[in-house]
Design a protein around this nucleic acid. Structure first.
Length: 603
RNA sequence: GGGGUGUUAGUUAAGCUGGUUAUAACGCCGGCCUGUCACGCCGGAGGCCACGGGUUCGAGUCCCGUACACCCCGCCA
């Protein structure tokens, strides 16, 4: 028998043989995905990343090969040589290769497999904990193989797209100087510089700007970023960005380039045409109507701001509303149409749900035929005037349910934003996961430059300190920082922020005023960003850019339920790797060498 | 730091208001089977019910704590 690999080379993958290949002598390599042993005939589904092919071993034809085939078990890694034969009436329409099968003449078992901890099936039947522990087995499953293949394709298409348009793929360091603000950095102790630390870059932000100042004009990079923050379904501590920066551009130029990329990806990967230009929405409108800056526009259910109505009606006879608004809070309503009827129990569950987000409760009102309210803690005392105003503002009809939140703006927004999506999922307006074939891209634009940091009592950069304010707002930098909007933009898809960027502030004079408004002294600014401030003074071109969350984009593109399904080797919610056990302990000797001492005794 | 859900054979699950020997499917082992493709049939092995306390005559089941996983809030310019 000729030897596989050295003499018999692979001729095809397991996903490509069709009736066009009848009678061909082929060599396949792969894993035993399924076996059906009938005694005289053994059927094997051979699997590689491209698909499945049925291989048949018959006792009558070649007893020795049939004998070896009898030893095969799931996940054995094998090589097969044989002839492609038609399956005729026995064709399997579920398989791409179902019209044919391979009649084996040679079989080599490269490696046996112990029974795997879980079965390698397309259907998800295993806890995520086990999947992560044996990630290399989980990655054998077709859905994950497809997801990673899509991811590879996105990388490839992205490189082509940018390279075609004069962009240069340039690299930036991972080990950088710590700069305050923004996400927590992972720190790397420096052995050569006792007591000092590198930070792992949370993004290439400053370096890509310096590339512009250096004259590279158009930069992109598919780059890993690191952030030491708590994990979520769509957040991993290390993740990949499609990072872009361009000189001599305004916001619309960036949008053009990025819409071009996204449309190409959706066309090439899904065969879907996305209409351009993408919808745009001011930040303020997004907050008012949806409570956050990443609204899912696949359904409506907008929030109604009733703060002004409450104020105008002097509280409208409801002490809770009155107090909340007088204390500087806001009041908002969410109208749930009668068609989405909720039982009392379900509403109580919703109340528990919102309490978990810091809500004090979930005031509600069932709207009657005459616009009256029942089943409501507000109904008894509210003035008819305020009730009618709210009904009108919400467009409430008989049978509708109106839900309320009032108090601190950030809590009201968070609660109602999540509630809106929660209700939509519960009523099938959008699926629990995936796109439902609806792709609602949106640019959220013109947010405020500063956010008021209540704890610190200062204005802080909402994005980063180098975002360009709107020219017409620059005059308010000192007098009213809160009303200064800026050239920043987020790309949103179906309720996920998949990218964000800004036009940068390249004017040193305005830059100085921004720092001042943030309470950062010249000395402070110098010590933190001195190199960039210097650079901005030496002929920095107008420039701007954006970064796309590549993992999130792949998650949405593939319909994955979580980022972990498009990341090959993800971390758990506590940031651990269940396969390798990272992070792990190290010897005291290693720490000493780094001039580092742990204050925590590991258990 | 906070809220929620979960943890029972290798895997996925069932196990009611506490009660005698903890079920099933798939996988695994042995046997039979030449057209299966979720192959079928017969037989078998396999369990610190996550861990630690408590209540009780008696705990997989009730209570408290811990760990781990997942979802969310905070956090993520």
């Amino acid at each position: 028998m000729p030897r596989f690999i050295t003499e018999l080379k692979r001729t095809h993958t397991c996903g490509e043989l069709t009736k066009a290949d009848l009678d061909k002598e082929v060599v396949l390599f792969g894993w035993v995905h399924n076996r059906r042993d009938h005694g005289g005939a053994v059927f094997i589904d051979l699997r590689d990343r491209e698909g499945l092919t049925q291989v048949v071993f018959e006792k009558d034809v070649l007893p020795e090969v049939h004998e070896t085939a009898g030893q095969l078990r799931l996940e054995y890694c094998v090589g097969v040589r044989g002839k492609v034969a038609a399956r005729g009436a026995n064709a399997n329409p579920k398989l791409r290769t179902g019209e044919i099968e391979v009649h084996a003449s040679d079989l080599e078992i490269f490696n046996r497999s112990e029974p795997t901890p879980f079965q390698i099936e397309d259907r998800l039947e295993t806890s995520e904990e086990k999947r992560l522990q044996y990630r290399y087995l989980d990655l054998r499953r077709a859905p994950l193989q497809k997801a990673l293949m899509t991811r590879a394709r996105v990388n490839h298409l992205t490189r082509n797209y940018f390279t075609e348009s004069r962009f240069l793929e340039l690299e930036t360091p991972f080990m950088v100087k710590y700069t305050p603000g923004g996400a927590r950095n992972f720190l790397v102790p420096s052995r050569l510089n006792p007591g000092k630390f590198y930070a792992l870059a949370e993004s290439p932000q400053l370096f890509k700007q310096l590339y512009m100042i250096a004259g590279f004009d158009r930069y992109f990079q598919i780059v890993r970023c690191f952030r030491d923050e708590d994990l979520r379904l769509d957040r991993q501590p290390e993740f990949t960005q499609i990072d872009v920066e361009m000189s001599f551009v305004e916001q619309n130029d960036i949008f053009d380039v990025m819409e071009g990329l996204v449309c190409r990806l959706w066309k090439e990967v899904l065969g879907v045409e996305i209409p351009r230009p993408f919808q745009r929405m001011p930040f303020q409108e997004s907050m008012t109507k949806y409570g956050n800056d990443k609204p899912d526009l696949r359904f409506d259910l907008p929030h109604i701001d009733i703060t002004e109505l409450v104020r105008r009606n002097g509280g409208g006879g409801v002490p809770m509303l009155k107090d909340a608004v007088e204390a500087g809070g806001i009041a908002k309503a969410l109208r749930v149409p009668a068609s989405m009827s909720f039982s009392r129990t379900e509403i109580d569950k919703l109340e528990e749900y919102v309490k978990g987000m810091g809500a004090k409760g979930l005031a509600r009102a069932k709207v009657g035929e005459a616009g009256d309210w029942t089943q409501s803690p507000l109904a008894k005392t509210i003035t008819p005037e305020l009730r009618q105003s709210i009904n009108a503002a919400c467009g409430a009809q008989a049978g509708d349910l109106v839900l309320f939140q009032f108090g601190k703006p950030s809590t009201v927004h968070t609660v109602l934003a999540n509630l809106r999506v929660h209700l939509a999922k519960k009523h099938g307006l959008i699926p629990e996961y995936g796109s439902n074939g609806q792709w609602r891209f949106l640019w959220v634009v013109d947010p405020p430059l500063f956010e008021y940091d209540e704890e610190a009592g200062v204005w802080a950069a909402a994005h980063h300190a180098f975002t360009r304010p709107h020219d017409e707002d620059v005059q308010y930098l000192e007098s009213d920082p809160g009303r200064v909007n800026c050239h920043r933009y987020d790309l949103v898809l179906n309720g996920f922020e998949i990218g964000g960027g800004s036009i940068r502030l390249h004017d040193p004079a305005v830059q100085a005023r921004v720092f001042k408004a943030m309470g950062i002294s010249d000395d402070d600014a110098r010590s933190k960003f001195g190199f960039l401030l210097d650079a901005l003074k030496m002929g920095a071109p107008p420039h701007g850019g954006i970064a796309i969350g590549m993992d999130r984009l792949c998650m949405l593109l593939t319909g994955a339920e979580s980022l972990r399904d498009v990341v090959a080797w993800p971390k758990t919610q506590k940031g651990t790797d269940l396969m390798t056990g990272a992070p792990g302990e190290v010897e005291t000797r290693q720490l000493r060498e780094l001039y580092v001492k742990s204050t925590h005794e590991p258990r």
